[in-house]
Design a protein around this nucleic acid. Structure first.
Lengths: 267, 267
DNA sequence: TGCTGTATTCGGCATTGTCGAATGACTTTC
DNA sequence: GAAAGTCATTCGACAATGCCGAATACAGCA
């Protein structure tokens, strides 16, 4: 295993690695990119990138703008992303629990899984009041600055934790934790069975989340609530919220066949 | 241009074609697949498939189940699908119009784009009453049995129409149209500026949709309402609904820079 | 009209992915 | 409890494959 980076790891087959890098580049930029521009960023020859793009286009993974000739992501990716959700067991099992938690906590609920240095939201229930909210399914949250991420990481193997805390963690707000502080939180998270985050990703927004375990006892995801700091924090301290969160996390875990729980030898 | 099929077209670079086929196979099956099973279905050697899967896994496009060793789609696809939505201009421009249409029509609204033989839903607004509904963003609808599909197809080049109506169109209900009937509807759709569908995909469900044009006058998508047949059809006949739909379609088109509209030389 | 920026096509060479065969880890069978 | 069946994974040699330099086509601009 010579390569430890996770963002731009070179897996094996060259052309697929390159295609993946093209897709990720297109996903990150806010605008369409031309062949030449892509070739420069990826340090590849222009015809090489062109060939890759042609193939990706044939499968609907990229689309070429009619008059600028530039490329953007294609609808095929949306279709595949949707299939991922349909087939995802964690998501399926968590829907009922998420709904219940949203009612109990009167707050928005998110379910996430780890993906590289991010948590990807695989399920999202709106805060029960009917105000306009945007759906965050598919969104990526920073592992180190979200309760979901902390809940998973606190129960992950050291290898994973080391990998993620070795890079410099972006400071998103004045309260975002650094690597040391982050690691220092984990024992407490393990003891309590849930993680908190206060204004660490977005000012005025906080979250509480608990880890979800599979039948082998691995932390495969997390479920938790998000909301305005001034609404959420008082209720966390008053304990009712944290209990609801851990109960939901435990419920999903049980459905996945988990038998043990932090502090509890076997459920 | 030797290849005209759209479902399993072989674009160019072999390994990417194969990787795409793996992803589509995993997306279609309801369960995880092992290396051997995949190799059989794709008629490839087992080590070849294994190598492709390893690379896809390194990028988060597939995941391997811990104890069954079988593969499933990965969270990276969800991330990319979400990026597609974020960057999609049609979607961005249609959000406001879709919201307004949902209010006026008191029905669920969908915005879709063509993708092979399907329409992919890129935006979805729930029916205003607060009953539990599932989000259909990313879902694929049959082109020939949805108002969205018909609205786009009626304004598409003959080449595209021929391609899609050449294959046998699946009969989803007793009312699903065949290729001939479908083509016969198009002149009317072009004249009226909107398409209808009644119980042709799902019994008891109908839809009305209008085409969305870009600044070159190409039909790049459609917007429309869906709902229970007995609720929707009377209101379509009473004309109010159709007017609201075409108005929304026209509104989005204008935002995309379209200058003309069926029946109208220039807007 | 020429210039400079694109996207695309072509084709020869060597890198790269492919697949037969072998290995190892498990499960089932008798 | 050995033997025969799964299956995923590793190895390595051959040649098919994708790569990229150079040439082409096409646009917008001076």
């Amino acid at each position: 295993m010579p390569n430890t980076a996770h963002s731009t790891r070179r897996g094996g087959i060259q052309s697929i690695d390159r295609a993946a890098r093209i897709l990720k580049t297109l996903a990150s930029g806010p605008r369409r990119l031309g062949v030449t521009e892509l070739a420069q960023r990826l340090e590849l020859a222009v015809p090489t990138v062109h060939g890759l793009l042609q193939t990706l286009q044939a499968h609907g993974f990229v689309e070429q703008d009619r008059d600028s000739d530039k490329y953007q992501l294609g609808a095929g990716l949306l279709q595949l992303g949707n299939s991922y959700l349909d087939l995802n067991e964690l998501r399926g099992r968590s829907i009922v629990h998420a709904e219940r938690l949203a009612m109990r906590a009167d707050a928005a609920v998110r379910v996430g899984v780890m993906h590289g240095p991010s948590v990807i939201v695989v399920h999202h229930v709106f805060r029960p009041d009917a105000t306009l909210q945007i759906l965050e399914v598919g969104a990526q949250l920073p592992v180190h600055a979200s309760a979901l991420g902390k809940a998973i990481l606190a129960f992950s193997p050291d290898e994973v934790v080391d990998d993620l805390t070795s890079e410099d963690l972006p400071r998103l707000t004045g309260r975002t934790l650094g690597a040391r502080e982050l690691r220092a939180e984990f024992p407490g998270v393990r003891e309590r069975g849930f993680a908190r985050e206060r204004d660490e990703a977005v000012l005025g927004e906080s979250s509480v989340a608990g880890p979800i375990f599979d039948h082998l006892g691995h932390a495969v995801g997390a479920i938790g609530v998000v909301g305005d700091t001034e609404r959420l924090i008082p209720r966390t301290i008053a304990k009712g919220l944290a209990a609801a969160v851990t109960e939901a996390a435990r419920g999903v875990s049980r459905e996945l066949g988990a038998r043990s729980w932090p502090g509890t030898p076997a459920a």
